[in-house]
């Protein structure tokens, strides 16, 4: 890690991290207003490769990510990152939310948004130092956005906004990344940038879990898949898991069946 001086304790833990699964979820159940949206999901992330979460609209894909990150309350279940609960592993967990989750009219510049990814490394109440601004700038370069660093975020195209979020996640220097539809509504240049970033994260041995809505491209970008529709339908390598049978089971209206049983 780049800032290993200040994180000596974490360096000691690194060999142990490799042995434990980046993400393990046991019996995860989430409900909004007594309406279950995820039902008893068990999941362990693969030791290598990129993972796609697929399923129909309202299947609980984003909710799965948010529940793992403690952004929505869980009814039951346990989520562990490298064997520990989130509060002990926040520095290792990066997050790219859906683009629509923030107000793009907000008066901040591209660089300021990317620097927010560094906040986990900066102590409480301390300003963003030059070192962290430079690190943020490097991340912008990786997604080809360095020349727009001073722009207000509202003046970017949708694809450029997506790349800002991606750069911000890179700035977090995490070990496991959650991305909510990074390919949604992006232009060709951004699609390439997203793929490049995913590849380099994969090469560095990071775990990446993406909500992905396009079944056609799952096999192109990802090596593993988690198929969700209220419950876990299947998970494993794309080649053996993304079968016609599993797709049919995932995209059939199972929501109703389970509601009746619940």
């Amino acid at each position: 890690m780049a800032n290993s001086q200040s994180l000596a304790t974490e360096e000691i833990q690194v060999p142990a991290l490799a042995a434990l699964p980046a993400l393990s979820v046991r019996d995860l159940t989430v409900a909004y207003d007594r309406q279950p949206v995820l039902w008893s999901v068990d999941y362990v992330s693969p030791s290598s490769g990129l993972t796609a979460i697929v399923g129909p609209n309202g299947a609980g894909k984003s909710t799965f990510i948010k529940a793992c990150l403690d952004l929505v309350p869980r009814l039951s279940g346990e989520v562990r990152f490298f064997g520990e609960p989130l509060r002990k592993r926040r520095r290792q967990v990066g997050y790219v939310p859906q683009r629509s989750s923030v107000d793009w009219q907000f008066p901040v510049t591209v660089l300021e948004v990317v620097a927010m990814g560094r906040y986990g490394f900066i102590g409480w109440c301390l300003p963003v130092s030059r070192r962290h601004r430079n690190a943020a700038m490097e991340c912008l370069e990786k997604v080809g956005m360095a020349d727009l660093a001073g722009r207000q975020i509202g003046q970017l195209s949708g694809g450029q906004q997506q790349r800002v979020f991606l750069a911000r996640a890179l700035a977090q220097e995490a070990q496991i990344y959650f991305m909510d539809e990074p390919f949604a509504g992006v232009d060709a240049a951004t699609e390439r940038a997203v793929i490049d970033v995913l590849k380099s994260l994969d090469d560095e041995g990071k775990t990446v879990i993406c909500v992905h809505h396009d079944l056609q491209t799952v096999a192109d970008y990802f090596s593993s898949v988690l198929m969700l529709n209220l419950t876990k339908i299947a998970d494993g390598p794309v080649a053996t898991t993304l079968t016609q049978e599993n797709i049919a089971r995932t995209y059939r209206g199972r929501v109703h069946d389970l509601n009746l049983r619940a």
Binding site: D70, S101, F106, M116, Y119, G120, P127
Partner: peptide, 20 residues
């Protein structure tokens, strides 16, 4: 004192929570 924290919670409460 909380300039940076207030900024991130105002702009992106989700990321702020994820960062602790």
């Amino acid at each position: 004192l909380f300039y940076k924290e207030i900024k991130i919670t105002t702009f992106d409460a989700g990321l702020a929570s994820a960062l602790g």
